[in-house]
Design a protein around this nucleic acid. Structure first.
Lengths: 191, 191
DNA sequence: CTGCTATGTTGACGCGGACAACATGAGGAA
DNA sequence: TTCCTCATGTTGTCCGCGTCAACATAGCAG
């Protein structure tokens, strides 16, 4: 035990940032064996702690999943922002995320977790949408620190709807990435 | 026990179509208490049978949920077909279904069940899409009895993607039905 | 040093999924 | 009719999981 993290920033207590380890373990299990296999006990096992240790960091299983999903939204947002100001590239990035992180994508949008119960998750999701909005609506958004979809423009919603629809088809395995990509390019930025 | 069903068609064995009762009970629990509350034991309790009776009709909990989802696709298809040949009306019908049967809608598209494991579910989903395709692609589809999305035209896929995207936003509670309806009308049938 | 609090452990309870063995009743065969 | 067979439903059981409670320990504050 007491393995110091590579970047020995704080190494808080016994384990040395168990919260981080739990989130990583959960994401690993999620991608390897699907969401059904993500149990608190299994996560604890992988992280090398007792079956109740996770409760010091997450009040419930859903809270842990919400944490994983929130980080997923963070990665999605990073991909979208990396696409620059090109709306079509953002659509591609969205599709790519749905494919590369399929299980996490399904968790994020599967609605097994009610966003109302997890403010951090809701705001992470909103932040990802804002990245899209900055380009689709052509304006920077400032105020309203969380939870208000009304700060998102209608053009963004439309773009999101169609991109997400295709991403869902691809994630469901009902459509190839190439076909979706082509369809998206054909539709793409046009109103 | 042995309550004869109103339409005493067959009354197969002891219970008189337990499979039907289980599906109904599961749908009721799903709508009342959410998907997490749909356990085989609770369903059996509601149906008034022992905790293991469901296994004579469904090999697993997921199989039961798949049955519920398949019937959901049947109802969605009925709504779409009732919309006639009007693509905009079909979009409305899709949204209306997502709102009226929100928990079931989330089950159907939540992807906690892998369609590959449940052929009946996959074909039910495909049939619903075909109803859309008949109008969006303007042609009747005949062959390929199941599981091949390639028999669905690209125009249909595009229409489905955007409608489903908005339906997802509404089901998630992030957008009002009216706003989605308006956005859909604005986009609607235009390519 | 002493005690406080955050963190992790051990133990327990009840629920739910799944399997096995048994019971029962319907329908066909003799 | 009588008996056999199998589909259907029941009882009993096992194990894993989520969650609570009680306890142990490590780092920090005074």
């Amino acid at each position: 035990m007491k393995l110091a993290v590579s970047t020995s920033e704080k190494a808080p207590y016994h384990h040395g940032d168990l919260r981080r380890s739990l989130l990583d373990a959960a994401l690993g299990i999620l991608h390897r064996d699907g969401i059904g296999a993500v149990s608190l006990r299994e996560v604890a096992r992988v992280a090398g702690v007792s079956h109740n240790a996770p409760y010091r960091h997450f009040p419930s299983r859903d809270a842990l999943l919400a944490g994983v999903a929130a980080e997923g939204f963070g990665r999605l947002r990073a991909r979208l922002e990396a696409a620059g100001d090109d709306l079509a590239a953002m659509g591609e990035a969205y599709l790519a995320f749905a494919v590369a992180e399929r299980p996490c994508f399904l968790l994020m949008f599967g609605s097994s977790l009610c966003k109302a119960n997890f403010p951090d998750l809701a705001s992470a999701a909103l932040e990802a949408l804002r990245a899209l909005d900055r380009v689709a609506s052509g304006r920077a958004v400032s105020g309203g620190d969380a939870c208000e979809i009304r700060t998102i423009g209608p053009a963004t919603l439309r773009a999101w709807a169609i991109v997400h629809g295709f991403a869902h088809l691809v994630a469901d395995g009902q459509l190839s990435l190439e076909a979706a990509s082509r369809a998206l390019a054909a539709d793409g930025t046009a109103p």
